[in-house]
Amino acid sequence: MFFTKLQPCLRITALLTGLLAAASASAEFVVIVGKGGPDAMTKEQVADVFLGKAASLPGGASAAPQDQADSSPLRDEFYTKITGKSAAQAKAYWSKLAFTGKGTPPPEAGNSAAVKKAVAGAPGGIGYIEKSAADATVKVVLTVN
């Protein structure tokens, strides 16, 4: 009787643990650059590039940042964890620069595969994708949990 009652509890616990693990896994992303880019970057260096405060990557190449699509959950997570601003706050920040001639926001790609392709193909390319999407065509410079 006791085990009969316990089994559903264990199953629910296992399910919740699995969901939490999955959520945790989906929260992990990497910042990538092209093969000729720097070996590592700090969170602050990445933030400066994606907020238009730094025009070049460490090493001197002109930065070509690539954003995820507006609707991507990864975009909100990236801006929150890297810049301390939500994706909406970052867009408001870029609106201020874009409509006053002080900068142009990073172009958007449809998904992580498109970001990876754009980063790999552009000198100074830099973007962010799920950790599981990284491969040998790009170099991981920062991993964020």
Binding site: A92, K96, F99, T100, G101
Partner: peptide, 18 residues
């Protein structure tokens, strides 16, 4: 032709999102 930078929000006074 540009905005007179009198205020903090002068440049973005028309950009409601900002």
């Amino acid at each position: 032709r540009k905005r007179i930078p009198m205020f903090y929000y002068s440049d973005t006074q028309d950009i409601g999102v900002a």
